[in-house]
Design a protein around this nucleic acid. Sequence first.
DNA 1: TGGGGTTAT
DNA 2: ATAACCC
Length: 487
Amino acid sequence: SLHEEEEEEEEEDEREWCCTVDCTDDNSPPAPAAAASSELAGDSHKYTIQDIDAPGYRVIIHIDLDCYYAQVEMSRNPEFKGMPLAVHKKHMVVTCNYEARKYGVSKVMTVSEALDICPEMILISGEDVTPYREISFKITELLEEFTPLVERMGLDENFVDVTKLVEKRLQQIESSGDPANIVVSGHVYGNQALNIADAKHVWLAVGSQIAVEMRTAIYNRVGLTGAAGIAPNKLLAKLVSGTFKPDQQTTLLPESIPDCMRSLVHPVQVPGIGPRTARRLDFLRINTIRGLQTFPLDLLEKKLGITVAQRIHKLSFGEDDSPVIPRRPPQSLSDEDTFWRCTSLDEVRVKIEDLLINLLIRLQNEGRVPRTVRLTIRRTSVSNKWFNRESRQCPVPNQLMQKIYTGPFDTVTPLANIVMNLFQKLVDTRLQFSVSLLSVCFANLIQPTLSSPIKGSIGFYLTQKSPGKLDMSPDGKVRRQLLRESG
DNA sequence: TGGGGTTAT
DNA sequence: ATAACCC
């Protein structure tokens, strides 16, 4: 049963909801918080606490870029400004801008449905995510200038742990006896009043000001807008960042946590509870947050296993200890393509070579070498409606990678041979077969060392021969030729 | 739905 | 190698 989510129609401008101090909802850089709603009452309050790990005192910001792919396309082509625009992959709309939403266009709609509603809409294929990936990393790097504690989620979301930044600012405020104004920037969830005598409130308020600075920096330097949520943990920051959507931010004060959790209609809306777990909860007649909160934990543990049960039970109360995990070099690189069917070994080989070529370019940009290669397929079958993927993996022979990096570029072929071998492990090619997805993944990525001299070979050729490494033709043909030439 | 990623088992 | 999660 594929779930059909109804589109949450986010209405903009519910400003009366935002009683709080300094609504910064427009695209212009937010006004410096000049309006003093509340003031540090001399030295009668102590906001800093000695133990930065004291429970409840983390300040996490979740930043969620607005309709990301569509926004990138609009910023790349200013002539699209004000026009309805959607980005699609294959037949599906994956993102659209707010102009398109006014017509009723939404994600999870086919391209033809969207065009019926809005024939003049601009359609852009987003199958090649390279530009989105690059801008996404720019934004993460920008956030890392504030603090290294930035965790990426997909291409358009980041978590930032600003606890230490907040600490620092509060120390400054206290030491410089400066009558700083402590206000919340943007919305406060549930319109709760800020209590400056409450250290937790003050910490989050300072966090909200950092969030404004981050959003402003993203707008000024990359030209994109986003929503932010500020809360004591990742779960809540993420939940609350969605409450006021385009280009606004929301802070959650601790007293509103129960309301915030109860605002969710179904457990599947809790990040961390996926469709699978949600279905199992449904079988247990747990279909509200309240139901999950009150369900006996020991019974839940027996039904779902101890780790999942304990985790989601805590999540239902808005509790989440998980740390913000700073970015590391990627653990894997993959490329995939779907199609209606692919039924011959020759076709399979062509597609696999194409995937490999793209991957080798990315690998070279990362300067990494894979120890493992994995092939994943989906069989086209009518009965198997259910999204099944199967994979086989094997080590990449070390000398092979060396040859690929140093040698003539027809050496994709040996790698393709290896992947074809994996294919034959998955599919009995003596019989008729048909697959609708091919995915190649390089995993177990290592940094080449002096003992495995791999650096600067293919990279050398690519940078010499193609100034625009990354804007080559999307079908891989140009790349293939370039690579051949380089040999 | 698509084209990516992650961690846990 | 699979299964769950995220976007």
